[in-house]
């Protein structure tokens, strides 16, 4: 019947217009769930890197997450660990430093202190120079590299920018971008 199909058309057209409005309101609803500007503005932490002592783990806070800062001693840098080399197949001497952040003449491990397995906080053993995650026994070395599974990858490195002797967490500097490109961190 011609008549009823035309009626159907207008009803559908009205439904479509109402649908457009509903979708537009979904956009406003989505925006309402975005993190607030004040939350985003608070997403930057500046660390004064002159304050840390060698081989002493300090836990800072950035975006509500624990940040491990570990200043490497000369001895730690110089230690050549054959095991690590075997895991990654890279030449000795290279391996330690590429996960570290160089500020002045010092090397620092700066990572998010959450196990990449399921998010527990690993504990540091200064004698062994390793991090043990108590939840499922994951083990990391003093650069945050995994030495024993289950963690799928090394500790994640937060976005950072080097500003003289300061480190700004939350901003992406060239050193961080390079780490990301080379796949050292996610």
């Amino acid at each position: 019947m011609k008549n009823s199909s035309r009626r159907g058309f207008m009803g559908k057209a009205f439904g479509a217009v109402a649908g457009v409005g509903a979708v537009a309101s979904l956009y406003a609803m989505k925006r309402s769930w975005d993190p607030l500007p004040s939350v985003k503005a608070a997403g930057f932490t500046t660390l004064d890197m002159t304050a840390y002592k060698e081989n002493e783990l300090v836990v800072e806070k950035w975006r509500g997450k624990p940040i491990f800062v570990l200043k490497h001693s000369k001895e730690m840098i110089d230690t050549l660990d054959e095991n690590k080399s075997q895991i990654t197949g890279e030449s000795l001497g290279e391996i330690d430093k590429k996960r570290l952040v160089k500020i002045g003449n010092d090397y620092f491990m700066v990572t998010i202190g959450l196990c990449t397995h399921l998010g527990c906080i690993p504990g540091y053993n200064p004698d062994e120079k390793s991090f043990l995650c108590a939840c499922h026994g994951g083990l990391y070395d003093d650069t945050g590299m995994v030495t024993k599974s289950p963690p799928p990858r090394g500790l994640d490195i937060p976005p950072f920018r080097i500003d003289g002797m300061k480190l700004v967490l939350g901003e992406e500097g060239p050193e961080y971008k390079k780490m990301k490109e080379t796949g050292i961190t996610l």
Partner: peptide
């Protein structure tokens, strides 16, 4: 602007239904 368009379509739909 959207509400005006919405109203036009609502009126057209009503006219069509009530023609019968």
């Amino acid at each position: 602007i959207y509400m005006l368009i919405f109203a036009i379509f609502a009126i057209l739909w009503k006219k069509e239904v009530w023609r019968d």
